[in-house]
Design a protein around this nucleic acid. Structure first.
Lengths: 134, 134
DNA sequence: GGTAACAGGACTTGACAAGTCTTTTGCTGC
DNA sequence: GCAGCAAAAGACTTGTCAAGTCCTGTTACC
């Protein structure tokens, strides 16, 4: 249970690599993929999502590549994970109140809510600066 | 991410129903399945796992059925979830030290470990007595 | 305008979740 | 000991989604 998908795993590897580079050094997708040992086409999809959610900036054409959109200490692991895996939801009934069809008083509901809060809290406290190797 | 499977959902529903019954009242699978609105054949598989891990007792033949193996306040949500979903592992690299092939110093490793500990802690603190409706 | 790079969509493959069906095993009560 | 009840066990089906691949488009630089 609660396994991170390989996509999430790759995503973290890729962006940690970016965070470990010198500031303002643009990295090629091919370079990142080779460095973190991930299929380039697959990593491309992941970085497209990063680009859409705004945690990395992308540049096309000659001299193009990827760059962190902000300083590593301002990008959290929570942002990274949720960018590619979607929101952290231990159970469908956590989000919307009316979605827990079974019981009006779902006794399990608050437990999942607590799990969600704790996990998000942990991930939000870790930044790319903490994870970067240098 | 982190979604409980339907199997886990059904498992909780089923065992909470058991916990809500009078002590020592044996419940038929057909009765539980109808009460919690789960396909009986599927619930059968789930209760087989419960039986194997020892959190419920089963009796065959006439007058048979299922019973909690202990008092509701001594069975935790963690036991229930791990019985059907397997151990809680946010990432493959949490368990064995050598399994994190990529980097000798995997910086993300301790984060997942912390997540695992927190989640297990929360679930271990909830018992079936807390969840039973009566 | 040609080449370098990311963007986007369609497609494939395999695994696993979510069930179903059938047979076997064990228990109880006559 | 046999009839019938109820769980155990295994084989099978179906659908979805993860994990990729491939191809075409779009944008930027020179």
């Amino acid at each position: 249970m609660m396994e991170l998908t390989r996509k999430g795993d790759y995503a973290i590897r890729g962006i940690v690599y970016l965070a470990s580079q010198p500031p303002n050094k643009i990295s090629l997708l091919s370079e990142i993929a080779a460095a973190v040992d991930v299929p380039q086409t697959f990593l491309a999809k992941i970085f497209q999502q990063f680009s859409k959610t705004g945690i990395v900036k992308s540049f096309r054409g000659t001299g193009g590549g990827f760059l962190l959109a902000g300083p590593p200490e301002e990008i959290t692991l929570l942002q990274v994970v949720e960018a590619v895996e979607g929101p952290i939801l231990p159970n469908r009934c956590v989000l919307k109140a009316g979605e827990c069809e079974r019981d009006v008083s779902c006794t399990v509901h608050p437990v999942w809510h607590q799990v969600q809060q704790k996990v998000r809290g942990i991930l939000a406290n870790i930044t790319l600066k903490d994870l970067a190797t240098n």
